[in-house]
Computed example of a mutant assay.
Amino acid sequence: MGIYLNPGKSSYEEAVNSEIYVDKSELIAYLNTVVKTKQKYVSVSRPRRFGKTMAADMICAYYDREADSRDLFEKVQLSKNSAASGKDRWDEYLGSFDVIRIVMTKFFKKTNSVDEGLEKMQRLVSRELMKKYPDADYFDEKDLIQTIEDAYAENKWQLVIVIDEWDAVFREFPEDKNGQITYLDFLRDLIKDKSYIALAYMTGILPIKKYGKHSALNMFTEYSMTYV
């Protein structure tokens, strides 16, 4: 279990075992319908305290191939409602992918520039990939996209990428328009039309469409708090 690569189930397990737990596990049933399709890009924009991080923890726990989460998901509504309704198997993609989980505020809240935050994030995530798959022929440890492509060429495990607080750059560097464009272009190049992506899931306070004419992330379907 890593910090960024295959982070496991412990955070979601704590939530499920807590006295107050809001079961949002049926979100997985929807996500399973878009996994490995052209609709595999999902963005959720909601205010703080609306459970975005808990849902991200749940997604990681479900898809992480190293998490061994069957017992955990057998407790929640995803499996119970699937069994009662006779719908498609709730565990179709359980434990099927490598998962990369990135909380963007960690990299942009205490850095001096967008470039500095991006460089730090890429090196840390790349380091875990290289430790996990040491036999791959890596070209540049500072280039996360290239590192993922090199690892995928070696192991063929598709990724679920979960990005929490994706809009951190816009909140921490509101005047840095060039930095914002650089960041959006990086996310596009990381995610869009990549064979190694099975699912991309992003959360944030601000919606993607807020950023006007720059359409680097126009492949995402956005869901706000107005969606049930």
Rank of each mutant, 00 (worst) to 15 (best):
residue 104 M to W: 09
residue 86 G to V: 07
residue 163 I to D: 04
residue 89 R to M: 04
residue 40 K to M: 10
residue 195 S to M: 11
residue 141 E to K: 15
residue 189 D to E: 14
residue 67 A to H: 00
residue 219 M to H: 12
residue 72 L to Q: 05
residue 71 D to A: 12
residue 5 L to F: 09
residue 116 E to D: 13
residue 228 V to R: 10
residue 102 I to L: 09
residue 98 D to E: 11
residue 131 K to Y: 12
residue 147 T to F: 02
residue 46 R to V: 13
residue 122 Q to Y: 07
residue 211 Y to E: 14
residue 75 K to H: 07
residue 67 A to C: 01
residue 96 S to H: 05
residue 39 Q to P: 01
residue 108 F to M: 11
residue 23 D to G: 02
residue 113 S to L: 06
residue 225 M to W: 11
residue 118 L to R: 07
residue 204 G to R: 08
residue 179 G to I: 09
residue 81 N to S: 09
residue 187 L to D: 04
residue 185 D to Y: 11
residue 137 D to A: 14
residue 96 S to W: 02
residue 75 K to S: 01
residue 103 V to K: 12
residue 133 Y to R: 13
residue 89 R to T: 10
residue 19 E to T: 09
residue 223 Y to W: 11
residue 126 S to F: 06
residue 105 T to W: 05
residue 90 W to V: 03
residue 163 I to Y: 06
residue 101 R to S: 06
residue 66 E to C: 00
residue 134 P to W: 12
residue 1 M to T: 15
residue 54 M to E: 14
residue 44 V to P: 00
residue 196 Y to F: 14
residue 212 G to I: 12
residue 193 D to L: 01
residue 4 Y to N: 13
residue 20 I to L: 06
residue 196 Y to D: 10
residue 185 D to M: 07
residue 4 Y to T: 08
residue 192 K to M: 07
residue 42 V to N: 10
residue 149 E to T: 15
residue 173 F to P: 02
residue 173 F to V: 14
residue 223 Y to E: 09
residue 53 T to W: 00
residue 91 D to V: 04
residue 3 I to K: 15
residue 220 F to Q: 08
residue 125 V to D: 04
residue 189 D to A: 10
residue 34 V to I: 13
residue 134 P to T: 13
residue 208 I to V: 14
residue 77 Q to P: 00
residue 76 V to E: 00
residue 46 R to Q: 10
residue 216 A to I: 13
residue 227 Y to P: 01
residue 228 V to Q: 13
residue 149 E to L: 12
residue 5 L to P: 00
residue 212 G to D: 14
residue 83 A to Y: 03
residue 88 D to R: 04
residue 72 L to C: 06
residue 115 D to M: 03
residue 200 A to M: 07
residue 83 A to W: 00
residue 178 N to Q: 14
residue 108 F to P: 02
residue 203 T to G: 05
residue 2 G to Y: 09
residue 224 S to T: 15
residue 74 E to C: 04
residue 121 M to D: 04
residue 55 A to R: 03
residue 31 L to W: 03
residue 175 E to N: 15
residue 140 D to N: 15
residue 146 Q to Y: 06
residue 24 K to G: 03
residue 98 D to G: 01
residue 169 V to M: 03
residue 86 G to W: 04
residue 161 I to H: 06
residue 111 T to L: 00
residue 120 K to H: 10
residue 78 L to V: 05
residue 47 P to V: 14
residue 121 M to R: 10
residue 72 L to D: 04
residue 201 Y to S: 04
residue 30 Y to A: 07
residue 38 K to A: 13
residue 25 S to I: 03
residue 126 S to W: 06
residue 129 L to N: 06
residue 162 V to D: 05
residue 188 R to K: 15
residue 58 M to T: 00
residue 212 G to K: 12
residue 169 V to C: 05
residue 224 S to D: 15
residue 186 F to P: 00
residue 13 E to I: 01
residue 52 K to Y: 06
residue 221 T to N: 12
residue 81 N to H: 08
residue 44 V to L: 14
residue 206 L to I: 15
residue 154 E to N: 10
residue 60 C to R: 02
residue 81 N to V: 07
residue 156 K to N: 13
residue 203 T to H: 06
residue 213 K to E: 15
residue 118 L to W: 08
residue 219 M to G: 09
residue 168 A to E: 04
residue 160 V to I: 15
residue 45 S to D: 08
residue 77 Q to W: 04
residue 193 D to M: 02
residue 29 A to L: 01
residue 23 D to Q: 07
residue 104 M to R: 05
residue 202 M to C: 10
residue 24 K to P: 01
residue 26 E to D: 11
residue 175 E to W: 12
